[in-house]
Design a binder for these strands. Structure first.
Length: 331
DNA sequence: CGATTTTGACCAGCGC
DNA sequence: GCGCTGGTCAAAATCG
């Protein structure tokens, strides 16, 4: 991967789509006076461990987020501080993080004790209990429908090749969203190497943006993880990668002697795997013993994370991400 | 030749 | 109801 060392990575945790995230950026935010909202403003508070972050830690409330982002009261030393950060991360739970791909009771690879699970509950709550209930109902309903459809399909003798036959959903049946995680990455390349293999299945123009959004699916059979990749139109060096779903397999990269010493533990969600990989890259770059790092206990200083739990909040926050002026290129 | 990408069309959800 | 938009499909094109 070309941009491995040349990027700043921002991971966010928030609800709902990323699209409005950048599409609503105001160009005006890029003027020089707006520097205080630049990416370099994203100086999170001290150290957050993954556990902290994923459990809805210190960044969970708007005030903290806003402060950290310099929306209202930026820390005086945020600009250009920490000159040698190879990467910054903010992790965004982009949606139904509470609904693990592995269905409740489905066992699967989900470890109920994973930080991810913790996020989900808190973020789901943040999203609103009603929605949560609704989703559960929808899912149950959909499962029933799917079963019916499958039974019917079997009787009728298989797949007919009309479009849109795959999702046998009824009108009004909302498709349940997978847990989603967005990573905002400063990178030259769109398709960031995350160890998995992806096949592009679509591309759409993004409203208010000259840059298209690409849709990828994990090429591994039976793995339904998807990701979307788009660029910020205000800051083309920023790539927003949104992962949806959970890998049901090990990371191919780790299977063939990748430099990441992290085992693709099924206990970690794919997103965490990814974050871990990013961390390990950073860690390795800092002459640290990757194998000695416990992801739950240690977050390398170069990686600083924030968690946002409210989509509306994100929208408010976005302008602070839009301005790339005088962004520190601390590579 | 299989895998992947491109691209236009289709569909669903949502706001007005 | 209509139009807009996001997401997906699938045939064709391209790549390795």
């Amino acid at each position: 991967m070309a941009g491995g060392q040349e990027r700043e990575l921002y991971n966010f945790l928030f609800h709902d789509e990323l699209s409005p995230f950048f599409s609503q950026l105001k160009p005006a935010a890029t003027d020089s006076a707006g520097d205080r909202h630049g990416l370099n403003q994203l100086e999170p508070p001290p150290f957050l461990s993954f556990t902290d972050v994923l459990r809805g830690g210190p960044m969970a409330d708007y005030g903290a987020v806003a402060r950290a982002l310099g929306l209202s009261a930026p820390p005086p030393d945020v600009l250009g501080s920490g000159g040698t950060r190879p990467a910054k991360e903010l992790m965004v739970d982009v949606g139904n993080a509470g609904n693990s791909l592995t269905s409740p009771g489905g066992g699967g690879v989900t470890n109920p004790a994973t930080p991810n699970s913790s996020i989900s509950s808190s973020s789901t709550e943040a999203a609103g209990d009603e929605d949560g209930e609704k989703w559960k109902k929808d899912q149950l309903k959909q499962e029933e429908e799917v079963e019916k459809q499958q039974a019917k399909g079997d009787e009728e003798g298989g797949e007919h090749k009309s479009k849109k036959v795959n999702p046998p959903r009824k009108k009004g049946d909302k498709r349940p969203r997978e847990p989603r995680f967005a990573f905002v990455t400063k990178s030259e390349v769109d398709n960031l190497e995350d160890g998995y293999r992806w096949r592009k299945y679509g591309q759409k123009a993004v409203k208010n943006s000259p840059y298209p959004r690409s849709y990828y699916r994990c090429t591994t059979q039976k793995c339904s993880v998807k990701k979307r990749v788009e660029r910020s139109y205000l800051n083309p060096t920023i790539v927003i990668t949104t992962y949806e779903g959970k890998h049901t397999h090990q990371c191919p990269a780790t299977g063939r002697g990748s430099t990441h010493l992290f085992p693709p533990s099924p206990a970690l969600s794919f997103s965490q795997d990814f974050v871990m990989q990013q961390i390990m890259q950073q860690v390795n770059g800092n002459n640290m013993q990757a194998g000695s790092i416990n992801p739950n206990l240690y977050l390398p200083p170069p990686l600083q994370q924030m968690q946002f739990q409210d989509y509306g909040l994100l929208q408010d926050m976005i302008p602070s991400f839009s301005n790339d002026d005088n962004q520190p290129r601390d590579i």
